Each structure stands twice: as C-alpha cells, then as structure tokens.
Simulated scan of single mutants.
Amino acid sequence: MLYGKLKEYRALLTFPSLTEALGAERVFSRYECPFATIPTPIRLRSGCNTALCFPLERKEIIDDLIDDGVVLTGMYEAREEGFFSIVW
C-alpha cells in the first residue's frame, strides 16, 4: 500500500548511504524538482533507511543525479501492486 507523498509522486530512489541521499536532495533542489524524503520501504532496504520520492513525470532528473556523481541502489515506480524497477 502506498502512503504519503509516494502515493502522489510514484517515483522512488534508494541509496547506499545517507550521504548519497543528501547529495540527491541538493540536485533536486538545484533543478527545482519537487521531492520528499521518506523511510525506505522495508522490502527495498539495502543500506540506507532514507529514500526520495518525486513525480514520475520528472524521471529525466535521474540523468542529472548520475552526472552529479550520486550513487543509487535502485530506481522504482511505485504502484499499488508493488515497486517496479525503472530501466534506465
């Protein structure tokens, strides 16, 4: 079941560390892309307990994150049925 901003935004990024999540926040702010910091869903945890969700229609920002050197452990589309990898 989806909750909070994840229900509205539908795109989710996970990170290996809090440092990477904070780096992603800076990129989102720089490009004025709305986002929310949320706890990483239990089934997706692999290091960092902080994830970022943002509007799925803005998924092109993933290129900017990668260009900025932010390390991601996963990129997902959140649906009521679960989380599905975004192939990049």
Rank of each mutant, 00 (worst) to 15 (best):
M1E: 11
M1I: 07
L2N: 11
Y3L: 14
K5A: 14
E8A: 09
Y9T: 04
A11C: 14
L12H: 10
L12V: 04
L12N: 10
L13P: 14
L13M: 11
L13G: 12
T14C: 11
S17Y: 09
S17M: 07
T19H: 10
T19P: 01
E20V: 00
A21Q: 12
A21C: 15
A21H: 05
L22Y: 14
L22G: 04
L22A: 10
G23N: 14
G23A: 14
A24W: 02
A24L: 02
E25Y: 02
E25Q: 13
R26C: 00
R26P: 00
R26E: 12
V27K: 06
V27P: 14
F28H: 02
S29I: 03
R30W: 06
R30P: 00
R30M: 08
E32W: 03
P34Y: 01
F35E: 06
A36P: 03
A36D: 12
A36C: 10
T37R: 14
P39Y: 04
P41Q: 06
P41A: 05
P41R: 07
I42K: 09
R43D: 08
L44Y: 07
L44T: 05
L44Q: 06
L44S: 08
L44C: 05
S46N: 15
G47Q: 09
C48R: 14
T50P: 05
T50Q: 11
A51M: 13
A51H: 10
A51W: 12
L52S: 13
F54I: 04
P55Y: 06
L56N: 05
E57N: 10
R58Q: 09
R58T: 04
E60M: 08
I62G: 04
I62M: 03
D64H: 14
D64R: 15
D64C: 06
L65C: 04
I66G: 02
I66Y: 09
D67M: 08
D67L: 12
D68W: 08
V70C: 10
V70R: 11
V70P: 14
V71C: 08
T73E: 15
T73R: 13
T73S: 15
M75C: 13
M75H: 00
M75R: 12
Y76Q: 03
A78I: 02
R79W: 01
R79T: 03
R79V: 02
R79Y: 02
E80F: 03
E81L: 05
F83S: 01
F84Q: 02
F84W: 03
F84L: 01
F84E: 05
S85L: 09
S85T: 07
I86M: 02
